[in-house]
Simulated assay, not measured.
Amino acid sequence: MSSSPINGASYVLTGLRWLPKSGLRGFVAIPLLINTLLFGAGLWWSTGQFERLDRTVAGWLPDWLSWLHWLLWPLFVLTALVVVFYTFSVVANVIAAPFNGLLAERVEKMANPAGATPPTAELTWKELLLSPLTELNKLLYFIGWAIPLLVLSFVPVINVAAPVLWALFSAWMLALEYSDYPLGNRGLSFRDQRRLLRKHWPRTLSFGGMTLLLTLIPVLNFLAMPAAVIGATLMWVREMPERGDGSRRP
């Protein structure tokens, strides 16, 4: 595969093609079921909340300001969609984290059979117990960046750039989220992962951008999580020279 610095998007598509591979189906099926159930619940819940919000906003405004209802509604919908998207994505990843870690380990073994076994492979059950805590740590980092962006979305003039900033933010967060599984298996801390991915930022953002696109396409959004885990693992094995111990791949 080409070593272009912006080929991260191609690894997400490769992840889709790897989903039916023998040896991966069991690790893919459980996260896929979790993702399907959560997104279904999220769609049902958010539809009811949108209708309730519409009635509330309409009730607040006097008749002579009713035109504001149609002006503010797109902003409310955009904000609500962002909140719902991140909430249910975070919940899905927290629940599926143990399975995603095992999926990343299996993909690395298939992609590099002669390579060294990840140092955490013998601590599988410990990793299973601690992975939700790792996800919560990432959540705090995400919130720390999301709040300022949300505030900027309501600032006149500056909010014109909000969609672009949200897209870049989402691409970075998704790349960081799914790269954590292979990099975590190699012993990199969350801080070290951020440093590594910043060094490879064109590839990182193209990977995250394609993952974001998948999450926005009906049906394919259910496959986005396992495909991104597989893609991030292949990207780590094939493209990034650094290992968890600071050495370089041969």
Rank of each mutant, 00 (worst) to 15 (best):
K138V: 02
P163A: 06
V155P: 07
I158C: 06
R191T: 13
L140H: 09
W145E: 07
G184D: 12
A167Q: 09
V157P: 11
K138D: 10
Q193L: 14
L133W: 06
I143H: 02
N159T: 14
V164F: 15
L176M: 13
K199N: 02
L196A: 10
D192G: 03
L130F: 15
A161K: 03
P132D: 00
L139N: 02
D180S: 15
L136A: 04
L176Q: 12
V160H: 11
Y141S: 08
S170L: 06
F169G: 03
F142Q: 12
A161N: 05
A146C: 06
K199D: 01
L165C: 10
L174D: 06
V157A: 10
I143T: 04
Y178G: 08
N137D: 13
W145Q: 12
E177F: 05
L188T: 04
V151H: 08
L152C: 12
R198V: 00
L150H: 10
I143W: 01
G144Q: 06
L130N: 11
D180V: 02
L168F: 12
P148F: 03
V164I: 15
L130V: 15
L174E: 08
S179V: 01
L183E: 14
S131T: 05
A167L: 15
L196R: 14
I147R: 12
V160G: 07
E177L: 13
K138C: 02
T134P: 00
L140Y: 10
A162E: 05
N185E: 05
G187R: 05
I158P: 07
N159W: 08
P132R: 00
Y178Q: 09
A162D: 08
R191V: 09
Y181Q: 07
L139A: 08
P132S: 01
R195P: 00
R186V: 00
R186C: 03
W172N: 01
P163E: 09
L140N: 08
M173E: 07
G184L: 11
L168Q: 04
M173Q: 13
R191D: 10
V151W: 12
A171S: 09
G187L: 03
A167I: 06
R194Y: 00
F190D: 12
D180P: 06
K138L: 08
E135A: 02
A161V: 14
A167G: 13
S189K: 03
S131I: 02
R191L: 09
L188A: 04
L174T: 04
V164P: 06
R186W: 02
F169V: 02
R195A: 07
R194P: 00
S131G: 04
A162F: 09
V155C: 09
L196V: 07
W145K: 12
T134V: 14
V157I: 15
L174Q: 10
R194F: 00
L168E: 03
